[in-house]
Design a protein around this nucleic acid. Structure first.
Length: 318
DNA sequence: ATCCCGGTGA
DNA sequence: TCACCGGGAT
C-alpha cells in the first residue's frame, strides 16, 4: 500500500472526489459511465492505493514478471514493443528455452532467430536483439548496464524500453510511459482534453511514482490500463502522439515479410526467384530487398561470377 | 476493413 | 514533426 493505510484513506479529513470515492468502494465500478470527475491534487496517495489494490486482486502474471534477469527482461520488452501480450507469450517461452541467456543468443545463427521471430512482426527487433547480445557479452559481462544513457545507446532501446529494463531488472525508479500507462493517466487526469502531449504525462508520472517498489507500481498501472481498455473507448486517441497505421495488405511491410520468409525457408534466392514467389511488381520487390540489405538483414552470398546473377541470403550477424 | 502496439531517421 | 516498420485479432 506504499505507506497509505486504510485509516488514512477513510479518515474524516480526507476529501475524495466522487470518482475516487467510487473507486475506493469498488475498483471495478462502472467507469465508462462516470461524468467528467477528475482526480484532484492531494489524491495521489489515494490513487496509488486504488491502483495497488486493483493489482493485488486482479494483477496479471507473466513469465517475464517472475524474473529479474536483464536478458529475459530485455527479450520480453523488445517483443512487447507494438505487440500484445497474447502474441508474445508463446514466442517468449520458446526463445527462453532455446536461447536462455545473452551468451546463447550471441552464438545463435541469425536465420534461426528470425525464423522463430516470425509472427511477431517488426523484424528489426530481432536484428537488434542479436546486436544487443553481442554487446552484452563483449562489453557488459553477459548482462546490461543500469545506466540510462548507456541503455539508450542500444539499438531499438528508447525511453520506454530503457525505463522498463531498469525497473523490472533492478527495481530502479525510472519514468516508464507506455500505452497502458498512458491510457490510465489520460483517463484519470485529463478528462476531455484533446491532443495531450507526452511531456505533460511524464511530469505527472514523476509526481505519481511511489518512493518504493517502482516495479510493482508499473505492473499495476499497466494492468489497470488493460482493464480500462476493455471498459471504454481507447483514451489514447486523445494523445498528441496517437496515430493509425495504413493497412497491411499490399503494403511494403507485407512484401518485406514475404521476402524474409523466402530466405528463412529457402536459405538463398536470386531476385528472379523473389519475382516468381511474390505477386508484386519487380520494382517494389527490388526496393524492399534493397532496404532490407541496407538495414543489414540480407547480403550477397559469396562473390558471384561477374556474368551470373547475384545470389542473396540472410546476413550472419557478429 | 479496423484496431492495436515504440523506436528510428530524416 | 513525419513516414516507416508486421502482423494477429476481431
Amino acid at each position: 500500500m506504499n505507506g497509505i493505510t486504510r485509516e488514512l484513506i477513510y479518515s474524516p479529513g480526507t476529501q475524495a472526489s466522487p470518482l475516487l470515492a467510487a473507486l475506493l468502494a469498488d475498483p471495478l465500478c462502472n467507469l465508462h459511465e462516470r461524468d467528467g470527475n477528475l482526480l484532484q491534487k492531494g489524491e495521489i496517495g489515494l490513487f496509488q492505493s486504488v491502483i495497488m489494490d486493483f493489482f493485488q486482486e486482479y494483477g496479471r502474471e507473466f513469465p517475464w514478471r517472475s524474473t529479474t534477469d536483464p536478458y529475459q527482461v530485455l527479450l520480453s520488452e523488445l517483443m512487447l514493443q507494438q505487440t500484445q501480450t497474447e502474441r508474445v507469450l508463446p514466442k517468449y517461452t520458446e526463445f527462453i528455452e532455446r536461447w536462455p541467456d545473452f551468451t546463447a543468443m550471441d552464438a545463435a545463427p541469425f536465420s534461426e532467430i528470425l525464423a522463430l521471430w516470425k509472427g511477431l512482426g517488426y523484424n528489426r527487433r530481432a536484428l537488434a536483439l542479436k546486436k544487443i547480445a553481442r554487446q552484452a557479452v563483449v562489453s557488459y559481462s553477459g548482462s546490461l548496464p543500469q545506466d540510462l544513457s548507456l541503455l539508450l545507446k542500444l539499438p531499438m532501446v528508447g525511453p520506454a524500453t530503457a525505463a522498463a529494463i531498469r525497473a523490472f531488472s533492478w527495481n530502479l525508479p525510472s519514468l516508464y510511459l507506455e500505452t497502458n500507462i498512458r491510457r490510465v493517466l489520460i483517463y484519470f487526469f485529463f478528462d476531455a482534453a484533446e491532443s495531450i502531449n507526452d511531456r505533460e504525462l511524464y511530469l505527472l508520472l514523476k509526481e505519481l511514482l511511489p518512493p518504493e517498489d517502482p516495479k510493482s507500481w508499473y505492473y499495476a498501472l499497466m494492468d489497470y490500463g488493460v482493464f480500462l481498455k476493455k471498459m471504454i473507448k481507447n483514451p489514447n486517441r486523445r494523445s498528441a502522439h496517437y496515430t493509425r497505421q495504413p493497412g497491411f495488405e499490399n503494403s511494403n511491410r507485407q512484401i518485406r515479410g514475404q521476402i524474409l520468409t523466402v530466405f528463412t525457408e529457402s536459405g538463398k534466392a536470386t531476385r528472379k526467384d523473389l519475382y516468381r514467389y511474390l505477386s508484386f511488381s519487380e520494382e517494389r520487390v527490388d526496393a524492399c530487398l534493397n532496404s532490407l540489405m541496407d538495414e543489414g538483414f540480407i547480403a550477397a552470398a559469396d562473390a558471384a561470377a561477374a556474368e551470373s546473377e547475384p545470389v542473396y541470403m540472410l546476413k550472419e550477424i557478429q
